[in-house]
Design a protein around this nucleic acid. Structure first.
Lengths: 146, 146
DNA sequence: CTAATGTCTCTAGCAACTATAGCTTCAAGG
DNA sequence: CCTTGAAGCTATAGTTGCTAGAGACATTAG
């Protein structure tokens, strides 16, 4: 049995994050020791690794919740899991496209900066006027993890 | 003079967002009409467009605050503005690299899904075991806007 | 046995908004 | 002139995915 700290270091997840996952129901309530400390077995480690990996791949906790409940019922069709992954792929492709446009724009800005005074600075100028942009890099839709 | 709604639709920014920007000091306190409604002139529109554009380019509000204070004092060297833009460019390049690895992994997952039962689903399987991954798509470091 | 970690709960904070509630003001139609 | 509906106001709370802190108990190394 692992304490929360051991579990965290094995899975590469910080301790408060584990407690947070338990709190929002992604992880089941842990067993407790006599002294009320959480104890975890290998199943919890697997589940946490799953969550961690899916987070690394950019899935939201909501999507992960769905994926976990799918993997808890292994007899169903995997169409749902496939759909979630495909949606995530689309999302990522979208962001890639936007980021690529952004990068081009930032490069243009930086290259054109003459290094003189602010009054001549292309960075400031371009930021003040979207029509100076070469591409449309619109509304990156603030979200989290790619 | 524009009302907050007109300003918002001209700049492509939602009304509560404008009030929020005022609240955190990115926009100066607006003039008020007799009936206490905010009124904006063209300077405010420019400033808001600047903010909006910089947000679209992925700058944080903190970076934007700095850029605005630079553009408010146009007699300085533009080295600072240039540095902010360069840092932002690096950031974007980083994210691009990570996203590209992610995309490859997601594509692999999706392609390999045979469409059978969860028990055989590659999506679930890969999520449970990082060693099945072809690339290192590690820790995308949760942030906002690309 | 003591000191140093580790863990516990609870609360508050981060970015960058968005949404809600309950009110006032404004512009246009009848 | 009056009413109705949209748009504005303030203030507060919620969102996502954590992270940080306080103050108290548990465990372990020396």
């Amino acid at each position: 049995m692992l304490t929360i700290g051991k579990l965290g270091s094995k899975a590469g997840v910080k301790v408060p994050t584990i407690r947070y996952y338990e709190q929002i129901g992604l992880l089941p309530e842990a067993e407790r020791s006599a002294g009320n400390q959480r104890l975890y077995g290998s199943k919890a480690l697997e589940r946490l690794a799953f969550i961690r990996h899916a987070r690394d791949l950019g899935f939201t906790l909501e999507a992960i919740r769905d994926l976990l409940s799918l993997s808890d019922n292994p007899d169903q069709s995997c169409a749902a899991a496939d759909a979630i992954a495909k949606a995530q792929l689309l999302e990522v492709e979208n962001r890639l496209a936007r980021l690529t446009a952004l990068k081009a724009e930032l490069e243009r800005m930086v290259v054109q900066c003459a290094g003189g005074r602010i009054a001549d600075c292309r960075v400031i100028e371009v930021l003040g006027d979207h029509s100076l942009c070469a591409t449309d890099h619109l509304h990156p839709e603030t979200e989290e993890t790619p």
